[in-house]
Design a protein around this nucleic acid. Structure first.
Lengths: 211, 211
DNA sequence: TGTACATCAGTGAACGCGCGTTCACTGATGTAC
DNA sequence: TGTACATCAGTGAACGCGCGTTCACTGATGTAC
């Protein structure tokens, strides 16, 4: 019966059940994806009755939403880390392309390393009203991408005429690649072919952005 | 209690229950995706006991597999139709690019029009051994794509150095686009932005293939 | 051509499972006086 | 500083649901002689 909470250990009141349940849910999603995110199981993991979860979440959907948020943030963090861990290049144009490349690699690498979390980050949540507007595009991951794309234009590494909707273009390439490798027909590719496919895709995208 | 079978109507023996159940399963997948593909419900639709399905399928997974195959074929057919319905161009290079473009458009259009079937075409099937080898790449859809890509190289519309793994590159772009639009963060985009995103993605891919 | 019988293709009841959720409840906490 | 009491945060039993699957069965079909 693990608990990462620092207070109220073993007492009747848990202390921070909201976070504990979310973390347990993330653990479930990690191996097993969104289908494995089961409210009762999360409660079991925390060592609490299933009913207790209803004090903190408005049912299963709400828990799923919280877990999904964590997964999205993890993805964003992994992309940012991939950018940060590379060696910056002196030439600004080359540097902006290095970042873009790192972004895509980080995206795909996260999907491969944490396929459960990745799939959860994009899972459907029932009974959720669509945000109708483009507010979703203010998500951190999207803004990170937009910022790097702006940089490629500013440094001349990307043709300005390609800039509109370039977020969707780049995202599509990385997302499709990740899905096909993780979940789709490319799963049976040998590792080296997968590596080649990843870099071929990124190369074509960048070449396309430049013309 | 509909049945598209032409023989044995109303009799104790159905005549072609295998196909009838598959069709019912496709109908379920069509609205509702793979999660909605329920063996008992398919049997109900056909007007037969759930047990009867076990005479024709080795359990739920086998039915799912059959339905998935149909979905993949529908997708391929839609892509082929999209190629065929366009006006052929006199210039061979332009014509090969037109086909490639049509292929991508058809892919995304199918995903949007038949999101349930599309998702089912790529769904996971449990208890299924991986085909280990690249046999899956002999699927009709893949061969159609490969053939068009060969044509773009032969006509000079695509740089030969881009040819290796170009299937994966093109497929990734189209697949990611489809997923993001149908299931992902782009669902809330207005229609016109979606159209722009589709064409921007295809344009970038083709521009990338040429350099 | 007729009949016995193996085989095929269905039936319907039942099982166990695990889920999300609700209910009436009780133990712990903290605040007013 | 002590105590009454409202409120908060848990419990555990139960519900209904629909699923995939199994069982013993029966009605229909077709083939051998």
């Amino acid at each position: 019966v693990p608990s990462s909470s620092t207070s109220h250990r073993g007492s009747y009141h848990h202390g921070n059940l909201t976070q504990a349940l979310t973390e347990a849910g993330v653990a479930l999603a990690r191996d097993g994806g969104p289908e494995a995110l089961v409210l009762r199981e999360a409660a079991r993991k925390v060592g609490v009755s299933a009913t207790a979860a209803y004090r903190h979440f408005d049912g299963h959907s709400a828990l799923k939403e919280a877990v999904k948020d964590v997964c999205q943030e993890r993805l964003r963090a992994h992309m940012a880390a991939t950018i940060a861990q590379g060696e910056p290049l002196p030439d600004p144009a080359a540097e902006s392309l290095r970042k873009l490349r790192a972004l895509a690699c980080g995206y795909v690498a996260f999907a491969r390393a944490e396929q459960g979390l990745f799939r959860t980050a994009f899972c459907k949540i029932e009974n959720l009203q669509e945000p109708t507007d483009l507010e979703l595009l203010e998500s951190p991951a999207y803004m990170l991408l937009a910022q790097v794309l702006d940089e490629t234009v500013a440094t001349g590494a990307m043709s300005p005429q390609r800039r509109p909707l370039a977020e969707a273009v780049a995202w599509s390439g990385a997302h499709g690649l990740a899905m096909l490798i993780v979940d789709g027909p490319l799963v049976c590719f040998p590792e080296e072919a997968i590596q080649l496919a990843i870099h071929a895709t990124i190369d074509v995208l960048i070449a396309g952005f430049q013309h």
